[in-house]
């Protein structure tokens, strides 16, 4: 996708010298009209398409990055904050107390986004893992708070590593779900326009190939 966007930008330059921005050559055959539409719409959605492509690329590494984090930094935290495991099905500290404890360790105005029970891959046998987030950008860049399931104490908090922050930030930028209805409408319009130029780009390629073949056949017939 990135290659097609960048190569499209390169081949746009000679086209833009001949055809003004927004001009559609109607009445001179379907090929020229489709070519103009392809270049015009491509130029209009270029910024959006670059954002969606790059964030999609980062999101592709989401599972791998989470696994890396779980095996690296999280495993270190789990090793440091051990202790006798609790019954994961009935932890001594209930979820309300965990919620309160996690908020007391977070900056003011932050809220709990997820609570992971003890005894999972992302917690310890003894601790809850709580993800807390703020508002705006901080809502996406969550912090991790460990809560002791036996005493309710907070043995430690941690921030996400840079690569997980990048992937976490990629998600809203990829799906466009952070700006309400107006942004969703923009995303929908850009998605349909991109879908259209994908289809019409394929048609332009196929049509050129067909024309070449036709010319080749007529040249052979003449020979």
């Amino acid at each position: 996708m990135l290659v097609s966007l960048l190569s499209g930008l390169v081949v746009y330059a000679p086209h833009a010298r001949r055809v003004a921005f927004g001009a559609l050559r109607k009445g001179r055959g379907p090929r020229l009209l489709q070519l103009d539409l392809h270049n015009f719409i491509g130029a209009v959605v270029l910024g959006w398409a670059l954002v969606v492509t790059l964030t999609g690329f980062l999101l592709g590494f989401g599972t791998l990055a989470t696994g890396m984090w779980a095996q690296g930094e999280l495993a270190r935290v789990q090793a440091v904050h051990g202790g006798a495991p609790v019954d994961a099905r009935r932890p001594p500290i209930d979820v309300d107390a965990v919620h309160r404890a996690a908020l007391s360790a977070a900056p003011e105005g932050w809220h709990v986004t997820s609570i992971i029970w003890p005894g999972t891959d992302y917690s310890t046998g003894r601790h809850y893992t709580v993800l807390v987030g703020g508002s705006g950008l901080d809502e996406r860049l969550v912090r991790v708070v460990l809560v002791d399931a036996e005493t309710g104490a907070i043995p430690g908090t941690a921030q996400l590593p840079w690569y997980l922050k990048a992937i976490t930030l990629s998600e809203p930028l990829h799906f466009g779900d952070y700006g309400g209805l107006p942004l969703k409408l923009l995303w929908t319009a850009c998605t349909w326009l991109t879908l259209f130029i994908t289809g019409n780009g394929a048609w332009l390629w196929w049509d050129r190939r067909r024309q070449r073949l036709r010319r080749l056949v007529s040249a052979e017939e003449l020979a």
């Binding site: 930008l9 746009y12 330059a13 833009a16 010298r17 921005f21 130029a43 270029l46 910024g47 670059l50």
Partner: peptide, 11 residues
Amino acid sequence: NWPLMRITLLA
């Protein structure tokens, strides 16, 4: 190339 620059700026 001005048209190319204009499109890049818009993006």
